[in-house]
Design a protein around this nucleic acid. Structure first.
Lengths: 191, 191, 191, 191
DNA sequence: CATGAATGAGTATTCATTCAT
DNA sequence: TATGAATGAATACTCATTCAT
């Protein structure tokens, strides 16, 4: 009796997701060239060949991960946050809370940030993170809660620091992290 | 004492320096695993074999570069600056001037920063940069010119932003850079 | 005796025959090494695993096909024809008719010829085709209808031409074929 | 002291030719899929990697060999022969002499014929062999030395037999070959 | 029996390193 | 020294075969 079509589809979906999920950290830590398929498959807990059922090549797997790095890094949440009817200061505090918490608890998040930023620096990612942050900054400058200055540069400051800590946490688990309020203060006017 | 031997030594030195100098950018951009000796030698303009006259292995070359990345990134200058009898604010301004100018003019500097920071994150570099910066920060806090807060974290803020722009300039030549005063303001009290 | 068991046996037989039948062309065109089980099963319209229910290995399937290639190529018919109480000329004309007609209408026949000849050249097939043809040739030489010459060589001529057209038709469907009389003339004395 | 440019070029030429030359037999015997680079390199007497210095892939090597198969099979000689001011009968005898002699003495020739014919059957080779032979046939028909009939078909007869013996000699070294006069007689009118 | 996802041994390809010139 | 062709161990990728469903 043949396996049902749906069940097969399900299995495929599951395995593909497993591969992607487990690969993110590997690629974020070791880069494309530094990641061996043999190590990766061992880490995932599947045979090498299985990876090639779902991805044509190591590069395709990497690209697919790269492509979703913004989602892993929580771009959706940031966009949503940006749209809420809140004062900018609260948005920034919530965003910083989320970032610091995620960096602490979720290795994948750090990996997502690292990959997305790298991709951004290589000019291959859209700049949605920065742009959303800029919007919040501008809102905050109007409201008087955010320091004055070029919003793009301030945004780069903010994400530069996040990137540093993301990479840091990839290499040294349990590393000392800044507090959410430290991070917020990059943008917020001292009171 | 035959003069030719001296000259020989000189040539050796020159070639070795050439290899190191030209390799820094390559390694900073592509990482260790992502750098092929074949590409590297082409980029340097020598034969693959020549590299192995001066370095036992790719790793030795990489290590040697890694080891001097702090010098390339201007650690000596920073230490010297730190020791001068100047107010912290001036030190910070000079340091920021130097960093921004170097990031603009000298690709090697950006590479040095990138490599050093990476090394630091991997826990293999001493933290001289940070420590020197911390000293200046503490001095500035006493002098009232630097914002209050944990000096280590402030130092990490500062170098996080520098790292971001260093990596950025490695990938996109002629990228928009922040100004020296923007960079200084991370540490300096608004007036 | 349960009827279902018979029926089961029947189904088994049917599936096995389907696999063999559909595999012949594939193997004839691509050879053993050039045939992938994944492609083959897709072409047959069954799952890869199903093949292994009927055959222990790819090799077993191939061997089985190889072994019957002479039957596919009509060895039985040729033997029967050879035994009929007919003048050699008629035998040759009938044989050529059959060959040309089959090459045109039946892809499997061409595949059978190709596989059998290949097997022969590799020294793994008995030479029944040639031997039967030789008998007819000798008969014809006695009767004065077949050209003189070494019967083995004449037989090789004849089957060489048939092989060429068999392979040709495997690659280019609807290719121009020689006529039955052209083929017969290789052996028959001009009148 | 660096190797001279010319010497390098020479070595490269030599190695590339060695690879091609030694690969022809292998590919002709085993086909593309049946040929392992590991076996091939062992047979050539070089390291596997060396092949990849000269050819991007196994396929490229195969294609290159395929592309020159007509030369290996002596297309040039045939063309030249065709242009000589000789009666067709002599051309055919000389051609047959050359073919039979080469099949006996030169394994590469047989391989060339096999590869070229295969390529032809796959529709990827120009039909120069056949066309040149057809010219000679037509000439001979005018001169009364060649049997009547469609020149294309006669040409296919002729090369079909040659192909058969070429493949035969690839598999069984020292196999019984037909004589040059047997081969000529396919085309020549009996006297 | 039939399925097709998973396996891992086998094969192609790459690349750091060596060595004859 | 300097070269770059050659090497072969390491790595990416394939495909016959298995097995849980």
């Amino acid at each position: 009796m043949p396996k049902s079509q749906e069940r097969c589809q399900e299995i495929r979906e599951e395995t593909k997701n497993l591969i992607i999920k487990k690969s993110i950290l590997f690629f974020a830590r070791n880069g494309f060239a530094g990641t061996k398929i043999s190590d990766l498959s061992k880490h995932i807990g599947i045979a090498q060949g299985t990876i090639y059922i779902y991805f044509k090549s190591k590069e395709e797997l990497y690209d697919e991960i790269f492509a979703i790095s913004d989602k892993i890094a929580g771009n959706d949440k940031l966009t949503m946050l940006s749209g809420l009817p809140l004062p900018a200061e609260q948005k920034i505090r919530k965003m910083s809370d989320y970032i610091i918490k995620s960096l602490k608890d979720d290795e994948m998040f750090a990996a997502g940030i690292a990959l997305y930023t790298q991709r951004l620096l290589e000019g291959e990612a859209d700049q949605s993170f920065y742009m959303t942050t800029e919007k919040i900054i501008k809102q905050g400058q109007k409201e008087g809660s955010v320091v004055s200055g070029n919003s793009r540069k301030l945004s780069e400051f903010y994400w530069g620091v996040v990137y540093l800590y993301a990479v840091k946490s990839l290499y040294t688990s349990g590393s000392v992290m800044i507090s959410s309020s430290d991070l917020s203060r990059i943008l917020l006017e001292d009171k």
